[in-house]
Design a protein around this nucleic acid. Structure first.
Length: 357
DNA sequence: TCTGGACCTTA
DNA sequence: AAGGTCCAG
């Protein structure tokens, strides 16, 4: 039962992918024609994911091979939040190479301890399921997938209060640990995909236009429909949009600042978020994960051809992380800061984890 | 309200 | 040079 919940198996990924393929040819091409992959978004532990995403950075990634599972000598548990809130943690983390993110970890841990007597349970008991108000959500029908889209704004707001948690990290946690299926973590890579596949080629606007044209309420040819016609997503609320609005969002997504660097500004972030919500609906976060991973180089996504060849790849079930989140969480030294065992390598530095022999 | 430099480490 | 967030302006 726990595994079923972790993998969110009550959701038919295949049905979703087929639906998305009908909606969007680009998705179909990525999902079916090119790579035939499926990424199942997992329901991961909020505490571990929160602190992991706060300190992930480009290029940081652990390969399973690096861990030498068979020869492993020690396994660290994820630390208690109270331990991370102790004085001296920031300096300790800095010495381990966490850089300026050391402060984020320390301050966020202190913050959570300041608002809850039970810091390790607060994220799931209060923030995720809001048991104090709604009772135990999980006691509902087993056939019903628990979604938190209704509470998405309030959950995200709470996460954004934490130091080091901006829109992207908040959406990572919402999507992968809070059962918010419409959360879209937007980073520079997603920006590239959004521009190339949906903005520069007008794909987004065309999708909305085709919806206008296929509305059953009208038998007129779509060319005669006013562009202000509102398109509603089925089974979704808050996704209404007009062709004009889609055009506006496209402009924002294509816009660049003076230095011409691909920066995800706040307007761009929100435009891309809304665009994916509108295109793919209530599970758009899941859809975006598939687009994201299918755009990665095969060497990174681990889904590409290897000695077995590309043709017999199964539809993968892969941990639902955004960018360079390790498959295995980075491991932070457990509680005893007093226990100065010396600079044991605890960071997720791939290929440099040494097992004492 | 929004922009862009600083943060820190690794590649 | 890259990476997301913070903060000064």
């Amino acid at each position: 039962m726990k595994l079923k919940s972790y993998f969110q198996l009550e959701v038919s990924l295949e049905n979703l992918c087929n639906r998305w393929s009908e909606i969007d040819y680009n998705f179909k091409k990525k999902y079916i024609v090119d790579k035939r992959i499926g990424i199942r978004t997992l329901d991961q532990d909020p505490v571990e994911n929160l602190f992991t995403f706060i300190c992930t950075k480009y290029g940081e990634k652990i390969e399973l091979d690096d861990l030498e599972v068979d020869g492993i000598k020690e396994v660290y548990k994820f630390p208690k939040i109270a331990a991370l809130a102790q004085d001296g943690v920031e300096a300790r983390l800095k010495s381990l190479g966490f850089g300026y993110r050391a402060k984020y970890i320390s301050q966020t841990a202190k913050y959570i301890c300041s608002i809850s007597n039970d810091p390790d349970s607060w994220l799931v008991d209060t923030l995720k399921y809001n048991r104090t108000k709604t009772g135990d959500i999980l006691s509902g029908s087993a056939d019903t997938h628990v979604k938190n889209n209704e509470r998405y704004p309030s959950i995200k707001d709470e996460l954004l209060k934490m130091t080091g948690v901006g829109p992207k990290v908040a959406d990572c946690v919402c999507l992968m640990s809070m059962r918010v299926t419409q959360a879209i973590p937007v980073d520079t890579h997603v920006l590239q995909v959004a521009r190339r596949d949906y903005a520069d080629n007008s794909n987004f606007v065309n999708i909305i236009k085709s919806r206008v044209g296929s509305k059953k309420t009208s038998n007129r040819p779509k060319s005669s429909l006013p562009e202000s016609t509102t398109v509603k997503m089925e089974n979704c609320s808050g996704y209404d949009i007009t062709v004009q609005e889609a055009t506006e969002l496209t402009k924002i997504i294509k816009s660049t600042s003076k230095n011409s660097k691909a920066t995800v500004t706040k307007p761009i972030y929100e435009a891309i978020h809304k665009m994916f919500n509108v295109i793919f609906g209530e599970y758009s976060g899941w859809a975006q994960s598939i687009l994201f991973v299918s755009d990665l180089p095969d060497s990174i996504s681990s889904l590409g051809s290897n000695e077995t060849g590309a043709s017999d790849k199964p539809n993968g079930i892969v941990a639902g992380s955004g960018d360079a989140q390790p498959i295995i969480q980075p491991i932070i030294q457990p509680t005893p800061l007093s226990n100065t065992t010396g600079g044991r390598e605890t960071r997720s530095k791939s290929k440099k984890i040494k097992l004492e022999e």
